[in-house]
Design a protein around this nucleic acid. Sequence first.
DNA 1: GAATTAATTGAACGTTCGTTTTATTATTAT
DNA 2: ATAATAATAAAACGAACGTTCAATTAATTC
Lengths: 215, 215
Amino acid sequence: MARTTGSDGEKTEAAVREAAVSLIARLGYEAMSMRQLAAEVGVQAAALYRYFPTKEDLLFTLMREHMEGLSKAWDKARPAAADPVARLAAYVENHIAFHIARRHATHVSNMELRSLSHERLTQILKMRTAYEKELRTVLREGVETGAFEIDDTGLTAMALIQMMTGVIVWFRPGERLSIAEVTASYLSMTMRLVGATISHGTARPSGRAGNAVAL
Amino acid sequence: MARTTGSDGEKTEAAVREAAVSLIARLGYEAMSMRQLAAEVGVQAAALYRYFPTKEDLLFTLMREHMEGLSKAWDKARPAAADPVARLAAYVENHIAFHIARRHATHVSNMELRSLSHERLTQILKMRTAYEKELRTVLREGVETGAFEIDDTGLTAMALIQMMTGVIVWFRPGERLSIAEVTASYLSMTMRLVGATISHGTARPSGRAGNAVAL
DNA sequence: GAATTAATTGAACGTTCGTTTTATTATTAT
DNA sequence: ATAATAATAAAACGAACGTTCAATTAATTC
C-alpha cells in the first residue's frame, strides 16, 4: 500500500499534534515512541517524518505554539485600565482558564524542557520569562500605587505562578468544583497573598479582614 | 577483571543511589541509561543489578525513601502545641527546608511518577496524600478555632503545597536570597493566604493590613 | 487522460537499551 | 592455607528505538 484514500496532509498533521500532546503528557516524551504515536494517529511511523523532521522538532513545535498561545491569550485578556487589582485579576483568570483548557499541553511544556537542545530550551525559557515578567510588572505597579503590599515582587510572582499552574495537577473537569469556583477561590487567595486593599467589587460582609479584596 | 580492590557493597549501593538521584533529576528517568549511571559510579552496568533487580526498582526505592524522609521530618518538626498558626508555620518551614535540601530527590519524586507500575504508583501516592492530609488538618483546625479564614481547605492545601514545592524550580542556593529569607517570605505569604489573625509574634509595624501575621 | 505532485507504506539500517550469564578476583571465615 | 562468599567485569541477548529509503497509490493539474 501507499497513499491511502482520503488522506490529507493538513488533517494528518493536526492529528499528529493532538495525539502527541496527549501521549507525551501521559507517558512522557522519552517514553513515547514514534511508532506508538503513529499507531495512535492510524498511520505508519515513517509518515510522521513528512511533517516533523525529528522527534525533537515535534516536541519543540508543540511547546513553542503552546507558549505563543499563552502569550496571545494574555494580550487579549489584558485590560486597558491601569488599575493593578483589575490587571492582577485578569492575569489570574486568564492563566487559570488557559491552563485548565490546555492541561495536557501545559504538562508537556513544563515537564519536558530537558529534552530540548540547549538552543531551543533557551528559546522556550525566553518566552516563559517574558510571560512571567508581565505578572511581576503588574505586582510592581500595584506596590507603587499602594494597592498591594509585597515583600519581594520577583519571589511573589514565582509563588503565584507555581500556585496557579498547580491547578492542572489536581483539577479534573466535572468533579467536585467547577472552573468558575476554582477560579474564584484562586482569585481570592491571590488577592490576600498580595495584600490587596479594597479597591473594586463589593466590600466583604465579614467583620474581620478588612484589607482583603472581596470576590 | 572482576572484583576490584577496596570494593564495598554498601558504599557502592550508596554511590548508586546518589548518582541516580542526580542523573534522573538532570536527564529524566527514561533518558538515563543504566550504563550512564554505572559510569557515573565508576562501575560496569552489570554491577548495578547486584543492588537493584531492575531500573524501576531503583526508581521506586528512591521515591519511597524520599517520601518516608518527608514524613519523618514532619513527625519531628510537628509542634506539640495545638495552636494552628504555630502548626502551620512549622509545616511551611519544614516543607521548604526539606524540599530545598533535597531538591533533586523532590524533582525525581514529582516528575517520574508515570514510570512506576500501577501498584507502586498507588503506594507512593498514598504516602503523598497522607502527608498532604496533615496540612488539610492543620487548616481545618485553624478554621474551627477562628485562627484562619478559608473558603475551601482542600483547595487551599493544594494551592499552598504547589506554591511551596515550587521553590525548587527557581531557588538556587547561594544566589540572591538565602534559605532563611525565602522561608520567611513564604511564611508571610502563607499566613496572608489563609487569612491568619495575629496570634503570635510581634505585631506588624505597618499601619495597614492589620489582619496578617507579622513574621 | 496523461503528467505531476502529495501522502503513505513496508522494509530495512545501525544504535542503544535493560538485562542475563559466566567467569574472575578480592575479601572474609574457618 | 583453604574454603566460602562478596563484588565485580566482560560479553552477549533479544528487543526496541529513531530514522531513512524506495516503491506505490491517491489526488490534482494541465
